[in-house]
Amino acid sequence: MSLTITCPICGKRDGYEFRFGGEDKGPRPEEDGLTPQRWCEYVHLNECVAGVQKEWWVHKDGCGSWFTIHRDSVMNVEVATLEAHK
């Protein structure tokens, strides 16, 4: 495997220029009425999808942008959409 990732600013680059930033879980939950379970879910729990998932990456050795891509975790390749490679 040899991951490449498309940075919205710098284009397609070697995967090792980036750092993974987690499954996309959306913005953090509102604090009002927040239970420890819900907070734990946001902080620690993952769906661990074996397939395509939306996830965050940062172009660590490049422009520093945070962005999301879709990636097939079985093949370890970037794909265009959630539906791709299914």
């Binding site: 495997m1 040899s2 991951l3 750092r19 993974f20 996830e55 975790s73 079985v74 370890n76």
Partner: peptide, 13 residues
């Protein structure tokens, strides 16, 4: 590699 994967392929890196 520091990101989730289910691949059992290896890397040149």
């Amino acid at each position: 590699d520091q990101w989730p994967n289910y691949t059992t392929q290896t890397t040149a890196h």
